[in-house]
């Protein structure tokens, strides 16, 4: 056998798998969270690429051509000459919502992130578990509000009436499509945050999460802040590179 260059030494204090100090485990988990956020950044980039690409193309002037017009004009587009010809079931009453609504949702998320951040910091410093629990409850409720606002936003994306293969359908414009995927992605994140927030509340209430064992709260804070930051980035882009 060739020279064995690896030396196995029995070392009582060097054990990578078990009985590790929480700080070491936290470091590992934090790295995983950063990697997850890295993947999330790429996903967000892909969605913004989609938004900017379609905005740049503005194929057949359909990026936002229908937004802001009265609903009846939206529906008469390209298929029916008279409004009265439109089948009743296709008369939807969707008022286009300002892109600035994104800032409202983002503002709500930022507030929830700040509350959770402060709560986690306070937990580490003062070990006040009760304060953390109630702050986490508040942050979670606020994120639920953000989720509801996102659903409202999704329901107000403008549609156009198009004819396809001898039939007709209501379609989302390129703008609405791009916004749908961005808002939908945000909604998924809010639901995930609601799960994490709820877990924080329960774990804190049960005494699993304490001033000494705060590390999972640190991880959740990291993700929460990232969601808020991503909201700011998305809102900035969708309101500046925008409609007309």
């Amino acid at each position: 056998m060739a020279t064995n260059t690896l030396t196995a030494q029995h070392e009582e204090h060097h054990d990578g798998g078990h009985h590790e100090p929480p700080a070491k485990v936290y470091g590992r988990q934090k790295m995983a969270m950063w990697l997850f956020i890295g993947g999330d950044i790429i996903t967000m980039s892909a969605m913004l690429f989609t938004y900017l690409y379609l905005r740049g193309l503005n194929t057949q002037n359909h990026w936002m051509s229908m937004v802001g017009l009265p609903v009846d004009k939206v529906h008469t587009y390209s298929y029916y000459e008279n409004l009265s010809d439109i089948p009743t079931q296709h008369l939807i009453h969707v008022a286009p919502m300002s892109p600035s609504f994104n800032w409202l949702v983002t503002g709500v998320v930022v507030v929830s992130a700040l509350i959770f951040w402060a709560a986690e910091r306070n937990l580490r410093k003062t070990k006040n578990r009760a304060a953390f629990t109630w702050s986490a409850v508040l942050a979670t409720l606020i994120i639920v509000v953000a989720a509801v606002l996102s659903i409202v936003q999704l329901r107000h994306l403008p549609q156009i009436f198009v004819a396809k293969n001898d039939s007709h359908t209501l379609s989302y414009t390129a703008y609405s499509s791009s916004m749908m995927v961005i808002i939908g992605s945000a909604l998924v994140h809010f639901i995930l945050l609601a799960y994490l927030g709820l877990a924080m509340v329960i774990r804190s209430a049960r005494g699993v999460l304490t001033g000494e064992k705060w590390h999972h709260a640190g991880l959740v804070r990291l993700f929460w802040v990232w969601v808020a930051v991503s909201g700011v980035i998305v809102s900035a882009i969708t309101t500046t590179v925008n409609v007309h």
């Binding site: 989609t50 194929t59 002037n61 359909h62 990026w63 414009t173 390129a174 703008y175 499509s177 995927v181």
Partner: peptide, 27 residues
Amino acid sequence: PYFLTVEAIQILDRTVSTSFFVATGGG
């Protein structure tokens, strides 16, 4: 993540009539 995004929007085009890849809707 690009793979996830492109398939997600492909599903949206097929299920809720978005227009990512449909020229008549601006895609």
